[in-house]
Design a protein around this nucleic acid. Structure first.
Length: 372
DNA sequence: CCGCTTCTAAACAGCG
DNA sequence: ACGCTGTTTAGAAGCG
């Protein structure tokens, strides 16, 4: 496949949100005949804050509705750097820039994000301990009720637990920690949790060992045969309501899933696609500053086919959405965009999730929207 | 309107 | 006795 390599320039500090990162979010952009690859070099130091946004094992595709982007575009300064159809080769940012630019803290700072969760031990990323404080809705002045059903809440709580089983109390705690709405809510929700556990076939009760005298009651787990259904419900909920990707990008949750799950906020759809391919993390290490040809080759091998299939069968393809894939491979994060669509790198509207993210989107738009 | 799902409330029993 | 857990029933609300 024919491919060109383009490296995007650093943005002047006046044009990117210094509170988010100190340099442009994309240091290089690779465009092939059908796919545009954007890579974000990550320094090891910048990985810890964003362990779950991009999973090394779960490729993510993101559908973005571009037509609602106008207000954002109108608010932005005119494109100054690149004609998106005529990208120029420019210098890469410095290593120090990469440290900052790759910090995706802002993705987790949105108020309605699910908590950061530990990644599987197979990843080189640091582990969060259960006692670690987790970012939650407490950023909001008055947290709104989560869109998730109690079944979904229970499902998430159990799936996030190390042993995939929790006592009722543990489910309460997870919900409280994850959705502070329930801290102030009347206690009836606990009744609803128990009601769901008891009534739903999706959850099964495991009697504790007699030896385990700590705590009372049983442990609850997700019945494997209903796991797919729960994921689907969650997908649909996310599709309409969520602005968060952590959960569905979480390899622990996706493990064993036999289909992709996706989610959409008002304007964004995100699909974390499971793949038959071995996890990327099992691939040979990629140099910190990879040769672009190698990067393109890897991309082509790992994702070209998947992108193509997705484009063919994607019901959103003719619905005003476009799609790109977003995943992490070692210290790099990648966006894979279908290059033969009406490719607006305005697609970074994914970042139009809150004020901070809009700023970030502005950077990308300036970066990639280009002067026409 | 109907059926389904979900939520909420309540009552009750069992257990530690 | 008390609190927690688990079960069951009932009604309301929302949605397709």
């Amino acid at each position: 496949m024919e491919s060109d390599t383009h490296t995007l320039p650093p943005l002047p500090t006046s044009l990117y949100p210094t509170t988010l990162y100190q340099s442009p979010p994309f240091s290089s952009l690779l465009q092939t005949s059908s796919t545009v690859h954007v890579s974000l070099p990550l320094s090891p130091l910048s990985i810890p804050p964003c362990p779950t946004w991009l999973s090394p094992t779960a490729p993510v595709s993101i559908h973005l509705k571009t037509e609602s982007l106008s207000p954002l575009l109108d608010s932005l300064s005119p494109p100054q750097f690149l004609d998106r159809h005529n990208l120029h080769c420019l210098n890469s940012p410095t290593t120090s820039d990469q440290d900052d630019l790759t910090c995706l803290n802002w993705l987790h700072q949105r108020g309605n994000l699910l908590p950061l969760q530990p990644l599987p031990k197979t990843t080189p990323l640091p582990q969060l301990e259960p006692q670690d404080p987790i970012p939650t809705q407490h950023h909001l002045s008055s947290p709104s009720k989560p869109p998730y059903s109690f079944s979904s809440l229970i499902f998430m709580a159990i799936e996030y637990s190390p042993d995939k089983r929790l006592p009722v109390k543990g489910i309460y705690d997870w919900i409280l920690n994850s959705f502070p709405y329930y801290r102030a809510a009347p206690g009836g929700w606990r009744n609803s949790v128990r009601h769901n556990l008891s009534l739903s076939k999706s959850f099964c009760r495991i009697h504790r060992d007699k030896n385990q005298s700590v705590g009372k009651g049983s442990l609850w787990c997700v019945c494997p045969e209903y796991r797919s259904a729960l994921l689907e419900v969650l997908r649909k909920t996310q599709y309409y309501h969520s602005t968060n990707s952590n959960l569905l990008n979480n390899p622990a949750l996706l493990e064993g899933a036999d289909y992709g799950v996706s989610m959409v906020c008002d304007t964004v759809a995100i699909s974390a696609l499971t793949s038959d391919n071995p996890p990327l993390s099992s691939n040979p290490p990629c140099p910190l500053t990879p040769d672009h040809e190698e990067l393109v080759n890897m991309e082509a091998v790992e994702y070209e086919e998947e992108v193509g299939e997705e484009m063919e069968k994607d019901p959103l393809s003719d619905s005003g959405y476009i799609e790109f894939h977003y995943y992490q491979y070692h210290q790099y994060q990648y966006l894979v965009l279908p290059g033969d669509t009406e490719l607006d790198l305005e697609t970074v509207e994914i970042l139009q999730l809150d004020a901070e993210a809009q700023e970030a989107a502005g950077s990308l738009l300036d970066l990639a929207g280009g002067g026409h």
